[in-house]
Design a binder for these strands. Structure first.
Lengths: 250, 250
DNA sequence: ATGAATTTGAGTGTTTATGATTGAATTAGA
DNA sequence: TCTAATTCAATCATAAACACTCAAATTCAT
């Protein structure tokens, strides 16, 4: 049995039962204890499950944890600086779309005094927005458990009800040739539609995302202003031929 | 049985009953007293429950505290019984709409094993649904800060994407003459649309709501089956001429 | 076919979870 | 208030699960 195959079996079992014992996996896969343990360790590192003594369980499906998930790194500080700058672009009375995701989440604390109307597909954003008394509209759609994002055709359709002054999107990669990309095609479609409906579209992504190319294309570089952290001059020049780049100093 | 599994069982039991004795847990889980005590200690440290002499109780739920504030604990117990019955109506594979509100919220713990697809306009419901791995769709719309309900024309439009086997609605009052009513016209419109899109509509309301008439009419009594607590016979006869009434004994 | 890289399973000492036992603390009844 | 019955926290030995290492088996590239 292939490694990836075996690991998929484990994930499928977890989908059904929520928790599983090591011995059960051994019986089903006919692999040794060592192998199963290795699989579990790997899958845990990939955030596909959570190991517990004696087996594994599905990941904590707590939506609250999602918005602050990767506070491990100091790269959260970068995100905050980017978000702060992005928020400074927003003007009194703007109607804006804020994409789901941890980067855009960092913008929310800076919206308080802005008198804006916000539309979002990020479930985790809602609480923070409401707390600040910001009129908030949520798109409809399927709830992606892992990220708390709303996606799918219903989300796209929901968006058509609105027109935005500005939209702020998170991405997994940007590249001069392949444009903005993200792994999930459904999320990419939502981001694209939002950009279409906005007078001006902004993508927020730190410099480590340069050259990264994920599965799904969102749009060309030219179709959205990039807000990023310091890049080497030659890359900056290359990108500047494609689109506007706002560089945030740290 | 896995530690995490056993602890989840304890939490689930608490969901249903609000309090539980150590001996009950021992009987159900077949674990030793020592182990159960350790579990309770851990769960208390994680703020998942509160230990009391002889067992444990739930501790006020953060997110829903606001909306539950004014209700007595006896009302909650009533709601739970009503909700449990309502959930028992649901069949494997059903596509259901669950209205926002505290009454319908009580249904969620009973959905786990049902293999259903849920559409809701209740933001507070989403977390509970996702935690149980239930495929969840959210309607779009304006976020009503006080209740976490989605309302407005966008919500109505979102709903049109779906057809339901059953829908479960909360109301503020029911009356033989004036039908089901609720204070907010926008919420009433959402409820009405949901009932229209369902093969079968259910309204959940305890007997204290009888004779109450709020500002906005949702629909006539005849258009939804009423799930309620014990009513005087004469009232029951009167209502039975209008619609089906399911009475839940306490 | 050959050697390098990867995957696997068994063996190791260590860590963790469990259940029984103890005496102290708490509750309930007289 | 005192006593009896529970319930509790702490300790301990045991058994299970753990991470780690190493050698055998497999896969891969050449």
């Amino acid at each position: 049995m292939l490694t990836s195959e075996r690991q998929q079996v484990i994930l499928n079992l977890l989908e059904e039962k929520d928790t599983i014992k090591i011995q059960e996996i051994i019986d089903i896969t006919n692999a040794s204890e060592s192998t199963v343990r290795r699989d579990l360790t790997e899958l845990e590192n990939e955030h596909k499950l959570k190991r517990v003594h004696g087996g594994a369980t599905v990941l904590g499906r707590k939506l609250h944890e999602l918005s602050v998930l990767d506070k491990t790194s100091k790269n959260i500080q970068e995100k905050k600086e980017l978000a702060k700058f992005a928020a400074s672009i927003i003007q009194e009375g703007d109607c804006i779309f804020i994409d789901a995701g941890t980067t855009t989440f960092q913008m929310l604390p800076y919206l308080k005094e802005k008198k804006v109307v916000v539309v979002t597909n990020g479930l985790t954003h809602v609480e923070a927005l409401i707390e600040q008394g910001i009129p908030t509209y949520l798109t409809g759609g399927y709830v992606k458990g892992k990220t708390g994002a709303l996606v799918g055709p219903q989300t796209i359709q929901s968006l058509q009800n609105y027109r935005f002054d500005k939209c702020f999107l998170g991405v997994n990669g940007f590249d001069g040739k392949f444009g903005y990309t993200t792994p999930d095609p459904e999320e990419a479609a939502v981001k694209y539609k939002a950009s279409e409906l906005s007078q001006k579209a902004y993508v927020i992504a730190d410099h480590t995302k340069y050259g990264e190319v994920s599965f799904s294309n969102i749009c060309a570089m030219s179709q959205a202003t990039l807000i990023t952290t310091s890049l080497p001059d030659e890359i900056l020049h290359e990108l500047n031929q494609e689109t506007t780049v706002e560089v945030v100093a740290l």
